[in-house]
């Protein structure tokens, strides 16, 4: 039993987390939209990734993120069809996602890793990540709506923090894909899946 406990503690890591992310109502579920209300939408993705300097890795990151977004928007049932498009070749109804990933600099991350590794976790180190996702909705080439989903998390790594793990990591530890639910919630609330309706409501 003791062995299992020790293994569990080591598998869970020696870290403590603090975070910030945009909240959505707990009971939120995308509601049904009639086929008549749905529209076809094109999407594009661009990213500024300070901590990923290699071109191949950046492209891989963008590709995976774009696929993920397309899948999630399709799954939401709010749109008739979702397809990729270059920002210069966007359709009448277009959603552009810009990602700004940042946080602790590479130099400081390296320093933290060295300190932690060589002292076997005796000296606490900390790194933080920030991620801002900007969703901009265009209709007939004009920006009609935009919103930011900011995300932040800080990780403290120190061996004695093992004991605080159950307190500092709640069960609903946010994953970085949470922003898409925040955007879908806003799209639905503002009836942005039907841009002409959205515009007519504002006039």
């Amino acid at each position: 039993m003791k062995k299992i406990c020790v293994i569990f503690l080591f598998l869970s890591g020696c870290a403590s987390h603090t975070y910030y992310y945009p909240n959505i109502p707990k009971d939120y579920a995308v509601s049904e939209v009639t086929e008549k209300e749905k529209s076809e939408v094109s999407i594009s993705v661009e990213a500024s990734l300070v901590n990923i300097q290699q071109y191949e890795l950046r492209e891989e990151w963008k590709k995976n993120t774009a696929r993920f977004l397309k899948e999630e928007l399709n799954k939401s049932g709010l749109f008739k069809r979702v397809r990729f498009a270059l920002p210069s070749e966007k359709s009448d109804f277009h959603i552009h996602f810009s990602f700004f990933e940042g946080g602790t600099s590479q130099e400081d991350r390296l320093n933290a890793a060295i300190i932690f590794g060589y002292t076997l976790g005796a000296i606490p180190v900390t790194v933080h990540n920030t991620s801002d996702v900007v969703m901009t909705i265009y209709y007939k080439g004009i920006e009609i709506y935009s919103l930011v989903a900011p995300h932040y998390n800080r990780i403290w790594i120190w061996t004695p923090l093992i004991v605080f793990l159950p307190i500092t990591i709640p069960l609903n530890w946010p994953d970085k894909t949470r922003y898409i639910r925040y955007f879908l919630w806003q799209i639905e609330q503002n009836k942005l899946y039907n841009p002409s309706y959205f515009i007519s409501q504002r006039q």
Partner: peptide
Amino acid sequence: LTKTEVKVIETLRYQEK
């Protein structure tokens, strides 16, 4: 204020917004 109450808008149409 709670964090849910704050909305951040990033736009190119700054003055219009």
